[in-house]
């Protein structure tokens, strides 16, 4: 996604220390935050109305949490490797991150299976429906993050990611870490409210 205007912003010193594309990512995260704010507000409002089925959160969600936290660590390790131009490590840790992202998705899917065993389906009491929808929307964003990680991996293989071009990794990291924090928030929220 190279474009002249972003690589040489108006030919002058940038207004802030933040590169425009990084700023775009932060802005995007604000939107994502608002999406989940809307969904979790809806959750709270609906729960207050009563007729709310209580159930235990599936174990697999705890596994998901561990996986996503580890993936955040591996991504940071990948970034460190980039700064030190250790390309082997960079690729290794990026692969680890992407695979952990996929593992996260798998554990989410398994969590859904565990829920259905409990008798909690998408269709039925809203407490179950909300769980599926909220975690599902988060999972969709993880899919996007995994794709972004794979794209960065591709760039890494082409040696376009190195200590003099850290922007892409930085933007990926912002997105990825945000999703980790978001998951921690959602998991805590769902656990507290279930």
């Amino acid at each position: 996604m190279k474009s002249p205007s972003s690589s040489s912003p108006s030919g002058s010193s940038p207004r802030s220390a933040v590169h425009p594309r990084e700023f775009l990512m932060w802005g995007f995260l604000v939107s994502v935050f608002m999406l989940f704010a809307g969904l979790t507000s809806a959750f709270i409002v609906r729960r207050a109305d009563g007729n709310w089925l209580q159930f235990e959160l599936p174990m697999a969600f705890a596994v998901s949490t561990v996986l996503v936290v580890i993936s955040t660590i591996t991504l940071e390790l990948a970034r460190r490797a980039t700064r030190l131009n250790e390309f082997g490590s960079l690729r290794l840790w990026l692969w680890a991150t992407a695979l952990l992202g996929l593992a996260f998705l798998a554990s989410q899917f398994y969590a859904y299976l565990q829920l259905t065993e409990q008798g909690i389906f998408l269709v039925g009491n809203p407490s179950g429906s909300f769980l599926y929808v909220i975690s599902g929307m988060h999972a969709l964003h993880i899919v996007a993050a995994v794709v972004a990680a794979l794209v960065t991996l591709y760039q890494a293989y082409r040696l376009e990611v190195h200590s003099k071009n850290l922007l892409g990794m930085r933007i990926l990291a912002i997105f990825w870490h945000f999703l980790t924090i978001l998951w921690l928030y959602l998991y805590t929220f769902l656990w507290w409210m279930h």
């Binding site: 996604m1 002249p4 425009p20 700023f23």
Partner: peptide, 8 residues
């Protein structure tokens, strides 16, 4: 500015 932050 010459164009938007991300013309793409």
């Amino acid at each position: 500015a010459r164009d938007m932050a991300s013309p793409f």
